[in-house]
Protein backbone atom coordinates (compact mmCIF):
# COMPACT_ATOMS: atom_id res chain seq x y z
CA UNK A 1 0.00 0.00 0.00
CA UNK A 2 1.51 3.31 -1.01
CA UNK A 3 1.21 6.86 0.15
CA UNK A 4 -1.10 7.72 -2.74
CA UNK A 5 -3.90 5.50 -1.44
CA UNK A 6 -3.38 6.34 2.22
CA UNK A 7 -3.67 10.11 1.96
CA UNK A 8 -7.33 10.25 0.82
CA UNK A 9 -8.30 7.99 3.68
CA UNK A 10 -6.62 10.26 6.21
CA UNK A 11 -8.49 13.18 4.63
CA UNK A 12 -11.74 11.22 4.95
CA UNK A 13 -11.24 10.94 8.71
CA UNK A 14 -10.63 14.68 8.90
CA UNK A 15 -13.79 15.49 6.95
CA UNK A 16 -15.86 13.24 9.17
CA UNK A 17 -14.54 15.02 12.26
CA UNK A 18 -15.43 18.44 10.86
CA UNK A 19 -18.93 17.18 9.97
CA UNK A 20 -19.47 15.97 13.53
CA UNK A 21 -18.26 19.33 14.87
CA UNK A 22 -20.80 21.17 12.71
CA UNK A 23 -23.57 18.79 13.78
CA UNK A 24 -22.78 19.42 17.46
CA UNK A 25 -22.74 23.15 16.81
CA UNK A 26 -26.21 22.86 15.24
CA UNK A 27 -27.43 20.91 18.28
CA UNK A 28 -26.21 23.68 20.59
CA UNK A 29 -28.09 26.26 18.47
CA UNK A 30 -31.28 24.21 18.85
CA UNK A 31 -30.71 24.01 22.62
CA UNK A 32 -30.19 27.79 22.72
CA UNK A 33 -33.50 28.36 20.91
CA UNK A 34 -35.29 26.04 23.34
CA UNK A 35 -33.64 27.73 26.29
CA UNK A 36 -34.71 31.20 25.15
CA UNK A 37 -38.29 30.31 24.26
CA UNK A 38 -39.40 27.64 26.76
CA UNK A 39 -40.16 28.46 30.37
CA UNK A 40 -42.90 29.23 32.85
CA UNK A 41 -43.84 31.96 30.35
CA UNK A 42 -43.44 30.49 26.84
CA UNK A 43 -42.24 33.03 24.31
CA UNK A 44 -43.02 32.45 20.61
CA UNK A 45 -39.96 32.20 18.39
CA UNK A 46 -40.98 35.37 16.51
CA UNK A 47 -41.18 37.37 19.73
CA UNK A 48 -37.82 36.04 20.84
CA UNK A 49 -36.28 37.16 17.57
CA UNK A 50 -37.98 40.54 17.99
CA UNK A 51 -36.50 40.87 21.47
CA UNK A 52 -33.01 40.04 20.28
CA UNK A 53 -32.91 42.15 17.13
CA UNK A 54 -35.20 45.14 17.68
CA UNK A 55 -36.61 45.29 21.21
CA UNK A 56 -39.41 47.77 21.83
CA UNK A 57 -39.93 47.18 25.52
CA UNK A 58 -42.78 44.66 25.36
CA UNK A 59 -43.19 42.21 28.22
CA UNK A 60 -41.63 39.42 26.18
CA UNK A 61 -38.71 41.68 25.27
CA UNK A 62 -38.04 42.20 28.96
CA UNK A 63 -38.32 38.53 29.83
CA UNK A 64 -35.94 37.58 27.05
CA UNK A 65 -33.36 40.31 27.47
CA UNK A 66 -33.08 40.51 31.23
CA UNK A 67 -33.84 36.92 32.28
CA UNK A 68 -33.68 34.33 29.56
CA UNK A 69 -30.74 35.54 27.52
CA UNK A 70 -28.23 35.94 30.37
CA UNK A 71 -29.33 32.55 31.66
CA UNK A 72 -28.85 30.94 28.26
CA UNK A 73 -25.47 32.56 27.67
CA UNK A 74 -24.28 31.56 31.14
CA UNK A 75 -25.50 28.01 30.44
CA UNK A 76 -23.53 27.90 27.19
CA UNK A 77 -20.38 29.28 28.85
CA UNK A 78 -20.57 27.02 31.90
CA UNK A 79 -21.44 23.97 29.80
CA UNK A 80 -18.49 24.53 27.47
CA UNK A 81 -16.19 25.23 30.42
CA UNK A 82 -17.16 22.15 32.41
CA UNK A 83 -17.19 19.84 29.37
CA UNK A 84 -13.72 20.93 28.28
CA UNK A 85 -12.40 20.90 31.86
CA UNK A 86 -13.72 17.37 32.36
CA UNK A 87 -12.04 16.10 29.22
CA UNK A 88 -8.76 17.78 30.20
CA UNK A 89 -8.95 16.35 33.70
CA UNK A 90 -9.63 12.81 32.50
CA UNK A 91 -6.81 13.12 29.97
CA UNK A 92 -4.27 14.40 32.46
CA UNK A 93 -5.11 11.88 35.17
CA UNK A 94 -5.71 9.00 32.72
CA UNK A 95 -8.72 8.32 34.89
CA UNK A 96 -12.15 7.95 33.25
CA UNK A 97 -13.84 8.82 36.54
CA UNK A 98 -11.94 12.07 37.09
CA UNK A 99 -13.89 15.32 37.06
CA UNK A 100 -12.76 18.94 37.39
CA UNK A 101 -13.70 18.85 41.08
CA UNK A 102 -10.72 16.59 41.63
CA UNK A 103 -8.49 19.68 41.73
CA UNK A 104 -10.39 21.00 44.71
CA UNK A 105 -11.99 23.89 42.77
CA UNK A 106 -15.55 23.14 43.91
CA UNK A 107 -14.73 22.96 47.60
CA UNK A 108 -12.30 25.87 47.30
CA UNK A 109 -15.00 28.08 45.78
CA UNK A 110 -17.57 27.00 48.37
CA UNK A 111 -15.29 27.66 51.31
CA UNK A 112 -14.20 31.08 50.04
CA UNK A 113 -17.81 32.13 49.42
CA UNK A 114 -19.15 31.16 52.82
CA UNK A 115 -16.10 32.63 54.53
CA UNK A 116 -16.60 35.94 52.75
CA UNK A 117 -20.20 36.04 54.01
CA UNK A 118 -19.29 35.26 57.59
CA UNK A 119 -16.02 37.11 57.99
CA UNK A 120 -16.53 40.11 55.70
CA UNK A 121 -20.30 40.34 55.68
CA UNK A 122 -20.46 40.18 51.90
CA UNK A 123 -24.05 40.07 50.63
CA UNK A 124 -23.75 40.83 46.91
CA UNK A 125 -23.82 37.99 44.38
CA UNK A 126 -21.11 39.55 42.19
CA UNK A 127 -18.79 39.80 45.16
CA UNK A 128 -19.40 36.20 46.28
CA UNK A 129 -18.46 35.10 42.81
CA UNK A 130 -15.13 36.91 43.00
CA UNK A 131 -14.44 35.13 46.25
CA UNK A 132 -15.58 31.84 44.75
CA UNK A 133 -13.21 32.29 41.84
CA UNK A 134 -10.31 33.20 44.10
CA UNK A 135 -11.05 30.21 46.33
CA UNK A 136 -11.09 27.87 43.33
CA UNK A 137 -7.75 29.22 42.12
CA UNK A 138 -6.09 28.97 45.52
CA UNK A 139 -7.38 25.43 46.16
CA UNK A 140 -6.20 24.26 42.78
CA UNK A 141 -2.75 25.78 43.21
CA UNK A 142 -2.51 24.11 46.62
CA UNK A 143 -3.47 20.75 45.13
CA UNK A 144 -0.96 21.15 42.33
CA UNK A 145 1.83 22.11 44.73
CA UNK A 146 1.04 19.21 47.07
CA UNK A 147 0.84 16.82 44.13
CA UNK A 148 4.21 18.05 42.91
CA UNK A 149 5.84 17.49 46.28
CA UNK A 150 5.00 13.79 45.97
CA UNK A 151 6.54 13.05 42.58
CA UNK A 152 9.78 13.59 40.73
CA UNK A 153 9.65 16.07 37.86
CA UNK A 154 6.08 17.23 38.23
CA UNK A 155 2.87 15.90 39.70
CA UNK A 156 1.73 12.47 38.59
CA UNK A 157 -1.91 11.47 38.11
CA UNK A 158 -1.82 9.58 41.39
CA UNK A 159 -0.28 12.34 43.51
CA UNK A 160 -2.69 14.88 41.96
CA UNK A 161 -5.70 12.71 42.78
CA UNK A 162 -4.51 12.12 46.35
CA UNK A 163 -3.75 15.78 46.97
CA UNK A 164 -7.09 16.79 45.41
CA UNK A 165 -9.04 14.40 47.58
CA UNK A 166 -7.25 15.51 50.74
CA UNK A 167 -7.63 19.25 50.07
CA UNK A 168 -11.29 18.84 49.04
CA UNK A 169 -12.11 16.85 52.16
CA UNK A 170 -10.47 19.45 54.40
CA UNK A 171 -12.23 22.37 52.69
CA UNK A 172 -15.60 20.58 52.77
CA UNK A 173 -15.22 20.03 56.51
CA UNK A 174 -14.31 23.70 57.05
CA UNK A 175 -17.25 24.81 54.91
CA UNK A 176 -19.67 22.67 56.95
CA UNK A 177 -18.29 24.16 60.12
CA UNK A 178 -18.69 27.71 58.80
CA UNK A 179 -22.25 27.35 57.51
CA UNK A 180 -23.39 25.89 60.81
CA UNK A 181 -22.39 29.18 62.45
CA UNK A 182 -24.32 31.50 60.18
CA UNK A 183 -27.81 31.26 58.76
CA UNK A 184 -27.24 33.65 55.87
CA UNK A 185 -24.15 31.72 54.82
CA UNK A 186 -26.17 28.51 55.05
CA UNK A 187 -28.85 29.88 52.71
CA UNK A 188 -26.34 31.06 50.12
CA UNK A 189 -24.44 27.81 50.37
CA UNK A 190 -27.56 25.65 49.97
CA UNK A 191 -28.66 27.52 46.88
CA UNK A 192 -25.17 27.51 45.43
CA UNK A 193 -24.61 23.84 46.17
CA UNK A 194 -27.69 22.79 44.18
CA UNK A 195 -26.22 24.39 41.08
CA UNK A 196 -28.19 26.86 39.00
CA UNK A 197 -27.84 29.23 36.06
CA UNK A 198 -31.00 31.23 36.81
CA UNK A 199 -31.22 34.70 38.33
CA UNK A 200 -27.57 35.47 37.63
CA UNK A 201 -28.00 38.36 35.22
CA UNK A 202 -25.76 39.74 32.51
CA UNK A 203 -23.25 41.09 35.03
CA UNK A 204 -22.28 37.60 36.11
CA UNK A 205 -21.85 36.56 32.48
CA UNK A 206 -19.43 39.44 31.90
CA UNK A 207 -17.69 38.66 35.17
CA UNK A 208 -16.79 35.05 34.37
CA UNK A 209 -16.56 35.12 30.55
CA UNK A 210 -12.94 36.38 30.39
CA UNK A 211 -11.77 33.55 32.66
CA UNK A 212 -13.57 30.95 30.61
CA UNK A 213 -12.22 32.34 27.34
CA UNK A 214 -8.67 32.34 28.72
CA UNK A 215 -9.20 28.78 29.94
CA UNK A 216 -10.39 27.70 26.50
CA UNK A 217 -7.32 29.17 24.81
CA UNK A 218 -5.04 27.36 27.26
CA UNK A 219 -7.01 24.14 26.75
CA UNK A 220 -6.54 24.21 22.99
CA UNK A 221 -2.84 25.03 23.39
CA UNK A 222 -2.64 22.04 25.72
CA UNK A 223 -4.33 19.58 23.34
CA UNK A 224 -1.30 18.43 21.28
CA UNK A 225 0.85 18.07 24.39
CA UNK A 226 -1.88 16.07 26.07
CA UNK A 227 -2.03 13.80 23.02
CA UNK A 228 1.68 13.11 23.42
CA UNK A 229 1.29 12.63 27.16
CA UNK A 230 -1.48 10.07 26.67
CA UNK A 231 1.17 7.74 25.20
CA UNK A 232 2.94 7.74 28.56
CA UNK A 233 5.45 10.17 30.03
CA UNK A 234 8.48 8.46 28.49
CA UNK A 235 7.07 8.56 24.97
CA UNK A 236 5.92 12.15 25.47
CA UNK A 237 9.40 13.16 26.60
CA UNK A 238 10.95 11.30 23.70
CA UNK A 239 8.63 13.25 21.36
CA UNK A 240 10.15 16.45 22.75
CA UNK A 241 7.28 17.38 25.06
CA UNK A 242 8.07 19.10 28.35
CA UNK A 243 5.95 17.15 30.85
CA UNK A 244 5.98 19.72 33.64
CA UNK A 245 4.95 22.49 31.27
CA UNK A 246 2.14 20.43 29.78
CA UNK A 247 0.74 19.54 33.19
CA UNK A 248 0.97 23.13 34.40
CA UNK A 249 -0.90 24.50 31.37
CA UNK A 250 -3.50 21.75 31.76
CA UNK A 251 -4.09 22.45 35.44
CA UNK A 252 -4.25 26.20 34.76
CA UNK A 253 -6.87 25.62 32.06
CA UNK A 254 -8.99 23.33 34.27
CA UNK A 255 -8.75 25.82 37.13
CA UNK A 256 -9.86 28.80 35.05
CA UNK A 257 -12.67 26.90 33.31
CA UNK A 258 -14.16 25.02 36.22
CA UNK A 259 -13.33 27.70 38.78
CA UNK A 260 -15.30 30.31 36.80
CA UNK A 261 -18.19 27.93 36.06
CA UNK A 262 -18.46 26.68 39.62
CA UNK A 263 -18.19 30.14 41.18
CA UNK A 264 -21.00 31.42 38.99
CA UNK A 265 -23.31 28.43 38.88
CA UNK A 266 -22.49 26.24 41.86
CA UNK A 267 -21.45 22.65 41.69
CA UNK A 268 -22.92 21.28 38.50
CA UNK A 269 -22.28 17.65 39.20
CA UNK A 270 -21.84 15.19 36.39
CA UNK A 271 -21.28 17.58 33.46
CA UNK A 272 -17.50 17.28 33.64
CA UNK A 273 -17.68 13.58 34.38
CA UNK A 274 -20.21 12.46 31.76
CA UNK A 275 -19.59 14.74 28.80
CA UNK A 276 -16.17 13.36 27.81
CA UNK A 277 -17.69 9.87 27.73
CA UNK A 278 -20.30 11.12 25.26
CA UNK A 279 -17.71 12.95 23.17
CA UNK A 280 -15.08 10.22 23.00
CA UNK A 281 -16.99 7.77 20.77
CA UNK A 282 -17.38 10.64 18.27
CA UNK A 283 -13.87 12.06 18.45
CA UNK A 284 -11.65 9.13 19.32
CA UNK A 285 -8.77 9.77 21.71
CA UNK A 286 -7.46 12.87 19.89
CA UNK A 287 -7.75 15.80 22.30
CA UNK A 288 -7.67 18.36 19.49
CA UNK A 289 -11.17 17.10 18.66
CA UNK A 290 -12.23 15.67 22.00
CA UNK A 291 -11.97 19.07 23.73
CA UNK A 292 -14.19 21.03 21.31
CA UNK A 293 -16.69 18.17 21.10
CA UNK A 294 -16.84 17.98 24.89
CA UNK A 295 -17.39 21.73 25.13
CA UNK A 296 -20.29 21.69 22.69
CA UNK A 297 -21.90 18.61 24.23
CA UNK A 298 -21.50 20.17 27.68
CA UNK A 299 -23.27 23.36 26.55
CA UNK A 300 -26.10 21.42 24.88
CA UNK A 301 -26.60 19.13 27.86
CA UNK A 302 -26.59 21.95 30.42
CA UNK A 303 -29.14 24.00 28.47
CA UNK A 304 -31.33 20.96 27.94
CA UNK A 305 -31.26 20.05 31.63
CA UNK A 306 -32.08 23.66 32.50
CA UNK A 307 -35.08 23.66 30.12
CA UNK A 308 -36.32 20.37 31.57
CA UNK A 309 -36.03 21.84 35.06
CA UNK A 310 -38.26 24.75 34.04
CA UNK A 311 -41.13 22.62 32.72
CA UNK A 312 -41.00 19.51 34.86
CA UNK A 313 -42.48 20.91 38.08
CA UNK A 314 -44.84 23.82 37.31
CA UNK A 315 -45.32 26.39 38.62
CA UNK A 316 -41.92 26.07 40.30
CA UNK A 317 -38.56 25.25 38.79
CA UNK A 318 -36.11 22.48 39.51
CA UNK A 319 -32.50 23.65 39.78
CA UNK A 320 -30.40 22.57 36.81
CA UNK A 321 -27.88 20.90 39.12
CA UNK A 322 -30.62 18.67 40.49
CA UNK A 323 -31.90 17.81 37.02
CA UNK A 324 -28.39 16.98 35.89
CA UNK A 325 -27.83 14.67 38.83
CA UNK A 326 -31.20 12.97 38.29
CA UNK A 327 -30.54 12.59 34.56
CA UNK A 328 -26.88 11.89 34.91
CA UNK A 329 -26.82 9.14 37.48
CA UNK A 330 -28.91 6.53 35.60
CA UNK A 331 -27.32 7.58 32.37
CA UNK A 332 -23.87 7.02 33.78
CA UNK A 333 -24.84 3.63 35.14
CA UNK A 334 -26.11 2.68 31.67
CA UNK A 335 -22.90 3.95 30.08
CA UNK A 336 -20.77 1.86 32.40
CA UNK A 337 -22.94 -1.22 31.94
CA UNK A 338 -23.14 -0.99 28.16
CA UNK A 339 -19.42 -0.99 27.56
CA UNK A 340 -16.47 -1.49 29.78
CA UNK A 341 -14.98 1.76 31.07
CA UNK A 342 -12.45 3.21 28.71
CA UNK A 343 -8.75 2.94 29.34
CA UNK A 344 -7.11 6.31 28.92
Amino acid sequence: MSATTLAPRLHGIRHRRITVLLALLAAVVVAVVLSVTIGSKPVPLGDAWHALTAPTGTENDLVIRSLRLPRTVLGVLAGIALGVAGALMQGHTRNPLADPGLLGVTQGAAFAMVSSIILLGVSNLLVYIWFGLAGALVASVAVFALGMAGGRGGPTPVTLALAGTAVSALLAALTSAVVLLDEQAMDVFRFWQAGSISARGADVVWQVAPFILAGLVLAMVNAPGLNALSLGEDVARSLGQNIMWTRTIGVAAVTLLSGAAVAACGSLAFIGLIVPHLARPLSGPDHRWLLPYSGLIGAGLLLLADVIGRVVAPPGELEVGVVLALMGAPFFVALVRRRKPVRL
Binding site: L6, R9, L10, I13, R94, P224, N227, A228, S230, L231, G232, D234, V235, R237, S238, L239, G240, Q241, R280, G284, P285, D286, V342, R343, L344
Partner: peptide, 27 residues
Protein backbone atom coordinates in the same frame (compact mmCIF):
# COMPACT_ATOMS: atom_id res chain seq x y z
CA UNK B 1 17.45 13.51 15.90
CA UNK B 2 16.78 10.75 18.38
CA UNK B 3 13.70 8.60 18.96
CA UNK B 4 13.17 6.43 22.02
CA UNK B 5 10.67 3.61 22.32
CA UNK B 6 10.25 2.63 25.97
CA UNK B 7 9.45 -0.85 27.15
CA UNK B 8 5.78 -1.87 26.78
CA UNK B 9 4.38 1.59 25.94
CA UNK B 10 0.68 2.30 26.58
CA UNK B 11 -1.88 3.85 24.26
CA UNK B 12 -5.36 5.17 25.01
CA UNK B 13 -8.19 2.88 23.98
CA UNK B 14 -9.48 3.28 20.46
CA UNK B 15 -6.35 4.95 19.11
CA UNK B 16 -5.92 3.92 15.46
CA UNK B 17 -2.63 2.94 13.89
CA UNK B 18 -2.66 6.07 11.71
CA UNK B 19 -3.33 8.29 14.73
CA UNK B 20 -0.53 6.68 16.72
CA UNK B 21 1.95 7.02 13.88
CA UNK B 22 0.77 10.59 13.30
CA UNK B 23 1.69 11.43 16.89
CA UNK B 24 5.29 10.64 15.97
CA UNK B 25 5.19 13.93 14.04
CA UNK B 26 4.72 15.84 17.29
CA UNK B 27 8.21 17.44 17.38
Amino acid sequence: ILGVLPQAPVAPEGLTVADLVGRGRHP
